[in-house]
Design a protein around this nucleic acid. Structure first.
Length: 303
DNA sequence: AGCATTTGACCGAA
DNA sequence: TTCGGTCAAATGCT
């Protein structure tokens, strides 16, 4: 429960920093979007050997979007990790890019009970999980959430023509007990309900945070743990996977939240068998066109 | 070989 | 008894 103290002390400041960072990123994004692509591309292709110059505007913009999303998500996660955050969930619901919501179990009764189920009975427990998810959202597109998930089951649900898919963090071997359920609740336009249970404590979670490459160096040093939930699998599909760097320096202890860093490709559920973690890479830019994204930008702009 | 997915079976809750 | 969540063997993929 000492985390509560940490949270009370640092939460507000951290949220403030996150929001500021998000605003900065949004501004940068705006610049990129209004940039003359052609001239920019030619300049960059010929151009310097600076790190950023290797990126085409599209990539830059994508990175910025990720940063914005990360920032917003982090803030929401902060808010959502407070006990009095009932109203925040409404905001979260609207943030279709948002992600898995790792929460301290101290804050989350549902998770606590789930954890109890998992840890107190070493034998196989097939108890039905609590109905209250840690985090829930409804979205028309399935966004990579920064974590890799392993599907462990699917069920037909009564009164629903769509299957419900069950996923758990691939790092369950690290005692990471994060899980998520994905169910399509509407066909056309597609609408998915995603429920997250528990939070990530796996290493990759920290790693992804640390290897995150800040677009703007000025705010890159925020030492918070958040989870932006972008599946690495999707990342892999987007960019030929570079080897992960060695584990980075220790982060603050069982941190409340975590930021993952990279890629926000669109996560797509297969129409037919609902196989998860299938992503439309080339459609990463769907983000740009989606109402959700525009709404997101609007929100950031208003900060 | 190692990891992810599929799928039928099992189990507890309602 | 039904339903939903999970397990685990079989299978597929890289």
């Amino acid at each position: 429960m000492e985390d509560l103290g940490w949270f009370a002390t640092n939460g507000k400041k951290a949220m403030e920093e996150e929001l500021i960072r998000g605003r900065d990123m949004a501004n940068q994004l705006l610049e990129v979007l209004t940039f003359d692509d052609k001239s920019n591309i030619s300049r960059q292709v010929k151009g310097s050997n600076s790190k950023s110059s290797k990126l085409l505007p599209l990539s830059i913009a994508q990175d910025l979007v990720r940063e914005v999303l990360k920032s917003l998500t982090n803030t929401l996660l902060y808010l959502n990790s407070r006990q009095d955050s009932n109203d925040v969930l409404i905001t979260v619901r609207d943030l279709s890019f948002s992600t898995n919501c790792p929460k301290m179990d101290e804050y989350d009764g549902a998770y606590k009970q789930l954890k109890t189920l998992n840890t107190e009975s070493p034998k196989v427990s097939k108890k039905r999980k609590l109905s209250a998810p840690t985090w829930e959202r409804t979205t028309s597109i399935l966004i990579d959430d920064g974590h890799t998930w392993r599907k462990y089951g699917q069920k037909t649900i009564t009164n629903s023509k769509y299957l419900r898919n069950y996923y758990r963090c691939t790092h369950s071997d690290q005692r990471c007990e994060a899980m998520k359920h994905v169910q399509r609740i509407q066909g056309n336009p597609p609408l998915y309900k995603i429920s997250y249970y528990g939070y990530h404590i796996c290493k990759s979670y920290f790693q992804s945070n640390i290897i995150s490459k800040p677009v703007s160096s000025s705010h890159s040093s925020i030492l918070l743990c958040f989870d932006n939930n972008i599946s690495s699998k999707q990342e892999d599909m987007l960019r030929p996977s570079p080897p992960l760097p060695p584990p980075s320096p220790p982060l603050p202890p069982p941190s409340p939240l975590v930021v993952s860093s990279e890629g926000d490709p669109v996560e797509v559920i297969k129409e037919d068998h609902f196989s998860q973690n299938q992503f439309l890479l080339s459609e990463g830019l769907q983000l740009w066109e989606s109402d959700v994204f525009l709404e997101l930008l609007r929100d950031v702009k208003m900060l």
